[in-house]
C-alpha cells in the first residue's frame, strides 16, 4: 500500500504533517510530502487515519 496526495485538491491545511509526522512532512510553503514509500503492516492504521482526517479529501491509501 502507498499514500497518494492529490495536489489539485490539497489546501495545505497542514493537519497530515501535524498529526502524522511519521508519514508526511510539509515543505516551507506548506506543501505535504509523503516520506514513507511503502506502507507496511505497522503503519497501516496511521495511514488510514491520515487519509481519513484530511479536511480536503486529498489523501488516499492505494494498492501499490
Amino acid at each position: 500500500m502507498r499514500l497518494v496526495i492529490n495536489y489539485q485538491k490539497c489546501r495545505k491545511s497542514g493537519q497530515c504533517a501535524y498529526l502524522h509526522a511519521e508519514l508526511i512532512t510539509a515543505d516551507a510553503d506548506g506543501t505535504p510530502r509523503v516520506i514513507v514509500e511503502t506502507i507496511g503492516k505497522e503503519l497501516r492504521e496511521a495511514a488510514e487515519d491520515v487519509a481519513d482526517i484530511c479536511p480536503s479529501g486529498a489523501i488516499t491509501l492505494q494498492e501499490n
Binding site: 490539497c10 495545505k12 491545511s13 497542514g14 501535524y18 506548506g30 480536503s56
Partner: peptide, 10 residues
C-alpha cells in the same frame, strides 16, 4: 484553495 479563512497548521 489558498484563502486562510479556516486557518492553517495545528
Amino acid at each position: 484553495r489558498s484563502h486562510v479563512s479556516f486557518g492553517a497548521g495545528t
